[in-house]
Write a protein that binds this DNA or RNA. Structure first.
Lengths: 355, 355
DNA sequence: ATGAAAGCGCTAACAA
DNA sequence: TTGTTAGCGCTTTCAT
């Protein structure tokens, strides 16, 4: 049994110094029963500061069965979108005195499951799931153990007997916004570029792409949709690499697109690189539109036209929903929040011109 | 007292089902005393799987005083460098059966301290500190409580009575590599662009910049060093914004630089934007060199020439060092690992030409 | 080879 | 208003 070099000061030490019982100290610390001797309270607080006491969260959690922490599982922190996402969640959580445990699942259901179980073992009772595999089967065990879950980016079909609160942007609409914009600029051959269709948000965006084309009388050309394969290790290639390869390949094909709709901004950045490799210009030769509106969009040359997700509102809702469940203030049926994306016009899209 | 809806199965349930005592179950689970009835062991394992038992980490930690988790504090996950950094740490830690608790301090010493104390309260005994304020005073309390610390990116002067293991790249050399390269290309007016000099790595890079110039007979021109101010809220502007503003301002000045050395790649990306805003080209009109070598460098137009930090090796060392301390396998004096950076030539630097 | 019992640090009935 | 007591789930001597 490994023990810390310097054992910490406990509630007993405080009690002894203040000349009261441990339960009194606990009462003071937790602000219970304000009908308590003001003088006693002060003695206790004095001892606390003198001793530099700070509570042992594990002992408290073991006793109360409650941990003021929410778990956050994201597919990868290497993509700035998820970094921004995590910051928003953390901000909203901190405002309600919850901490955030951030987990990087690398788009692997196995890792996701591992993390979720580890959270449960640590007494964490609520988790926000970022984009991840379509099936939530691997989470069901945890859910049965009382774990509250809010998913981002996908609605459950309930087909698995699972039904979680969810929060997302209207992805079909987002895609429609993007494609309509391109169509209005005169583009007719629009490429769709994505990593594996591993989340319903991605499927929705593809659906929005197809349906918008159709509704404008254009038959979707399957040779124009590029969906990267998942890698054998269950991971996913870097979005930038996917975009670059897609652009290079598509543009050299027999009937190249004149515009690309990227599944997200990082993929759009990759497309930029692919386009440049061929000596083509954006937006003069090729238009590109992204999704998310990460900060980087403004720094690119040209700045990226994209579909913005209202991340702050989305994450505020997610955190409120989750904490409501954890504190049993919300016992109703599952809630699904869908917010509206909007198009941010910048420099990467321009009118179609014959080349 | 809030309790989980579905109480989890405990070691007692397993013991009952297997018809043994709880201590036997514990023994089996922890692989102790292999001189144990094979048949008993099987009965226990059977019960474990049937019941879907998984240990309560809090109870275990409370008892043993040991948590197989290391904390990782980074300044911001919105910058992909730190995302990559976190992935490396996580990878190295997982290989040794440790989990990683990722904390986003937003470059605020107050938040850093908060996180560190919260880790201590959760029984975490080791933490890796990414770049953060020069003073580690706010960590000293935790360190006295037995928290093991490995710092990245800075060496302690010991002036505060603190002395931690550390891991870093030779930042002075990194800057020398960059500046020498620019000098060899013929540049004489080289700008230095950075956010607040809030870490010794940044100070070192500035020192390397100055000393290299000096050693080549060039008197550093202070009007060429751009160091953004810290914001009142203790946070830091986005690196890209700093770069953009620096480039815009410097380039419009009376005696503009012909090349920029950016404190990191994200700042270099911001400089790209600032240069473009003025209708200038990279590298024809202006050369730019970054630091870190994040993946994004390869996707930019032109790809960014940069000073590479060997992140994988760095993080492997950090994790090994930390776990060695936590498991008391390493009791020696503090260790300081310094690795060598190397220049990655790409397209953002070119020969000086009179404009 | 296995069980009984103590206790990690804390909180929450219940007493006083 | 404050103290006593029992235990949260686990590990680990010490018995047997």
């Amino acid at each position: 049994m490994r023990k810390s070099a310097t054992s910490r000061v406990t509630i007993l030490d405080v009690a002894k110094m203040a000349g009261v019982s441990p339960s009194t100290v606990s009462l003071v610390l937790n602000g219970k029963h304000d009908r308590m001797g003001e003088e006693t309270r002060e003695r206790v607080m004095d001892a606390v500061t003198k001793l530099g006491y700070s509570a042992n969260h594990m002992a408290r959690a073991l006793k109360t069965g409650f941990v003021p922490t929410i778990g956050l599982v994201v597919p990868t922190v290497a993509n700035p979108f998820w970094g921004e996402f995590a910051r928003r969640v953390e901000h909203a959580a901190l405002a309600q005195n919850y901490q955030v445990l951030l987990c990087n699942a690398e788009r692997s259901p196995a890792r996701e499951q591992l993390y979720v179980e580890s959270m449960l073992a640590r007494g964490i009772r609520g988790v926000i799931l970022g984009s991840s595999p379509l099936s939530l089967q691997h989470i069901s065990g945890a859910a049965k153990c009382g774990l509250q879950v809010v998913v981002f980016d996908r609605l459950m079909q309930g087909s698995e007997g699972l039904d979680f609160d969810s929060v997302r942007v209207d992805n079909v609409l987002g895609a429609r916004l993007a494609i309509t914009h391109l169509l209005e600029l005169g583009h007719r051959r629009i490429g769709f570029v994505s990593g594996p269709l591993s989340s319903s948000s991605r499927k929705d965006r593809l659906e929005g792409y197809r349906s918008t084309l159709l509704s404008h009388g254009i038959e979707p050309d399957e040779s124009l949709v590029w969906v990267a394969n998942a890698r054998p290790d269950n991971g996913e290639e870097e979005a930038t690499e996917i975009g670059r390869l897609a652009a290079a390949t598509q543009l050299r094909g027999p009937n190249p697109p004149t515009a690309f709709f990227a599944i997200n901004d990082m993929t759009a950045i990759g497309i930029y690189a692919g386009v440049r490799d061929l000596g083509l210009r954006i937006p003069e030769d090729i238009s590109v539109i992204g999704f998310d509106d990460i900060n980087l969009c403004r720094s690119m040359n040209p700045p990226i036209t994209t579909v913005r997700q209202p991340l702050e509102e989305l994450m505020n809702s997610a955190v409120d929903l989750l904490i409501g469940r954890m504190e049993q203030k919300n016992l109703g049926p599952t809630t699904h929040v869908t917010l509206t994306p909007n198009l941010v016009l910048r420099g990467s899209t321009g009118p179609w011109r014959a080349r």
